[in-house]
Design a protein around this nucleic acid. Structure first.
Lengths: 333, 333
DNA sequence: CTGAAAGCGCTTACAG
DNA sequence: CTGAAAGCGCTTACAG
């Protein structure tokens, strides 16, 4: 059943049918009603592919997220953002196409292909692990590109984006330890630019508030739970000298926390812990994890709004948003 | 840049270019190479929308998952399945479109729209919460529909699908308690057909193995962590009479386990707990959660394979798979 | 307000 | 092996 057939049954030209279907003012109210009723009756649905070819708009946006193909280490935070984005896009009439970019091989083919082949009108890149190689690929692409928390600020400034203030996230964690007069602290994280900012905000805050404080940083080889657990077990003596741990992100914090507890450490009495991201699991672990909340709903709304205006209203302006994280008090600190 | 332009620059007809791009044997090897090189040079990418209109194939499959719009309770298990599916589909050359169906309003419009509008060639429905209303909608749709763990077997048999043996999942949990000679047990779950099967497998196994055993069932109003926690707090006296708890799914088990521990119960010494699904969080909670693993990777592979043969090879056969869950031993039982 | 025609960018019988 | 033509199912100036 296509538009021609429907037109024949309605006794009008298919031009008129098309207009009725698209709420064009160029059709008599009565005609429209008749056609719409008939379409409903016959179960006719417009062929979106054909419409897209004619209009040039797909009403689809792609969401790219990083994943680690080898170890299947996926950020919990990322997963949550993807689903929030889908909801916000759907509200605005867009369908969501998801695709991962492999942070190991840096294979971006599925990425660029999607955009170039016109399967999507725009691309939202969730970017904590995006690299230089990816940058160049992105910049070849269409106008509607939006980055969520890209790792590096230098190149990202060429795009519309929302940054979540990483330095400030560190500050928040630092303030908590200061308030509790914890003066021996360690930051545990992977060695990544994004995380460094958080670390810096943390260190600056602590050393400013208490010049005597002892601050160390230790690096985790990857972001998996197991690695964090093993690392903590091996470095137990060193870690146990601290009274406060700032662990990025939450998933690593789970590993650290459990390894400490398995070694008889009481949290937060002996050692207080603060994580980063505020993923769902923070509620399930014991003690529940105090953490830095990333405003993912807000970020998703901004991304979806941007797509709406860029795609539907051809608004090509560059937009920059900065969101502030917040501290979430639970039981680990 | 379109195919005509490329043809002009290559000095051939665009028919030949199309053939070269599609690896048709109807083009001289030398011509093909020249055209491909030129395409690479000029950064030409085929317009997928146009191709789809011509061929009728989109190389895209939709993945539908249930979600609860009001409370935003999302199944962790579902989330993990979605991402596994994406990987398997990508390997086979398909892009993935995701959309949720609201289990509250049962609004399936985005669902049927996607399929009817020809944005996708096939649909994979992750179905633990799909209802009668949804059934009718699905059955109107295209040939390539695949269900993963649909709730009800009666109607689902009209589709290709993979079932994960729910009854057997319950049996596995029951066997564990039997082995440990735990004779007073409670099942905690939502009142849903899918879960009833698991409950039945569990009860049958226990009562067969130990006719004296005391088996009760209690119903949770929803699947959120908070509800499970509160419920356990309020029903503490009653629950504490059991020595073994079978809680469906994991997320509810997290709530139950933490509430018990906050009331001074030692797990598994006082009460042993087994969950269902084997989501990532089972590793993070304390004690780590023993649970029934659903073979989601296998299910995803089967779904993707089905799509490949149904869409690409027009194989319209109906396929039925039954997978067995397994017991994962951790610390809570 | 309505309709005939051109066009979106491809694929694929058909003829050579 | 190559090319001219028709067709996929829509939208949208253009003419009335």
């Amino acid at each position: 059943m296509n538009i021609r057939e429907l037109a024949r049954k309605a006794g009008t030209s298919y031009t008129t049918v098309s207009r009725a279907l698209n709420n064009s003012p160029l059709v008599a109210e009565e005609t429209r009603k008749r056609i719409l009723a008939l379409a409903g009756e016959l179960g006719y649905q417009i062929n979106d592919t054909a419409r897209s070819l004619a209009t040039g708009i797909r009403m689809t946006v792609g969401v790219m997220y990083p994943y680690h193909s080898l170890r299947r280490v996926e950020s919990l935070y990322t997963t949550e953002v993807v689903h929030t984005l889908r909801e916000e896009l759907q509200v605005r009439g867009f369908d969501t196409m998801i695709t991962g970019y492999d942070t190991v091989s840096e294979d971006l083919s599925s990425f660029t292909r999607l955009a170039r082949q016109k399967k999507v009108d725009g691309l939202i890149v969730i970017g904590s692990e995006i690299s230089q190689g990816a940058i160049e690929a992105v910049s070849q692409l269409a106008d509607a590109v939006f980055l969520i928390n890209p790792e590096r600020d230098d190149w990202a400034s060429n795009f519309s984006r929302v940054l979540i203030d990483d330095y400030y996230g560190g500050v928040l964690a630092g303030e908590q330890f200061l308030q509790r007069e914890i003066s021996s602290v360690t930051v545990l994280m992977q060695d990544a630019p994004l995380f460094s900012l958080r670390c810096k905000g943390f260190s600056d805050t602590i050393s400013l508030g208490n010049p005597e404080a002892v601050i160390s940083t230790m690096y985790l080889p990857d972001g998996s739970y197991e690695t964090a657990y093993e690392f903590t077990r091996k470095q137990f003596r060193k870690l146990a000298e601290s009274r406060g741990l700032f662990v990025i992100p939450d998933k690593s914090a789970f590993g650290v926390m459990n390894a400490l507890q398995d070694n008889g450490v009481s949290i937060p009495r002996d050692i207080a812990i603060i994580g980063y991201d505020d993923v769902e699991g923070c509620l399930y672990c014991r003690p529940s994890l105090s953490t830095i909340h990333q405003p993912r709903s807000q970020a998703a709304v901004l991304a979806a709004q941007y797509m709406e205006s860029a795609i539907l209203r051809h608004d090509s302006g560059r937009h920059n948003y900065l969101l502030k994280p917040t501290y979430v008090q639970r039981s680990s600190c």
